[in-house]
């Protein structure tokens, strides 16, 4: 069976219910702020949607837990190789040409910063989250199976150097 090409959403998408915009917008705002400030690249956010294919095809992915008072979930950011090489090169002020440890480290820090900015905005809406340590997966065309019965929101971003995606899954904690 032919594998889907990396970065191409495989499954049909569903429009995001308007009621979830309060949870999604902080991730969009924080992502644009972090990539714009640290890498001088202005990402163009696309329309958020509910992800039906819970696998994830990318070259580098940063993942971080979101654990709060009554709410929990995860956030992931997945980059195409061309995109993350340019982002990290701009961040460090030197050309990075391989998916190496420097890329993994930088994606961890980007995940941390984007999560921190989104959590700060969510706090103003009454949702408080604790700090967490991110994890990073690096392999060309990798897939990550997300095991959850809750909706995963995918936000696509375009840059002049290729795409990336931010995915967030937030739900009420089990009581």
């Amino acid at each position: 069976m032919q594998q889907p090409a990396p970065h191409q959403p495989k499954a049909e998408r569903t429009q995001l219910p308007a009621m979830r915009a309060d949870f999604v917008n902080p991730f969009i705002t924080s992502t644009v702020n972090v990539i714009g400030t640290m890498a001088s690249i202005q990402p163009r956010p696309g329309k958020p949607c509910i992800k039906h294919d819970l696998r994830n095809y990318a070259d580098v992915t940063g993942i971080i837990g979101l654990l709060g008072d009554g709410v929990e979930g995860t956030m992931a950011i997945s980059f195409a190789e061309t995109c993350i090489l340019r982002v990290v090169s701009n961040m460090l002020g030197e050309e990075i040409t391989d998916l190496n440890h420097e890329i993994e480290d930088a994606v961890g820090e980007l995940t941390n910063m984007i999560s921190g900015g989104a959590r700060a905005e969510l706090e103003t809406k009454g949702h408080s989250f604790r700090m967490a340590i991110p994890s990073v997966i690096t392999r060309r065309g990798h897939s990550i199976a997300v095991i959850t019965r809750f909706p995963v929101v995918q936000i696509p971003f375009e840059t002049d150097y290729g795409p990336f995606y931010v995915e967030a899954c937030l739900h009420q904690s089990p009581t």
Partner: peptide, 27 residues
């Protein structure tokens, strides 16, 4: 220098004796 931008974090740092506080991302 931290990604923790929540008010309670800043207050906690001030109470612990931080000299200054900068939120990532920064230029």
């Amino acid at each position: 220098v931290t990604a923790e931008a929540k008010r309670e974090n800043i207050i906690e740092a001030i109470q612990a004796g931080v000299t200054n506080y900068i939120v990532k991302p920064f230029t």
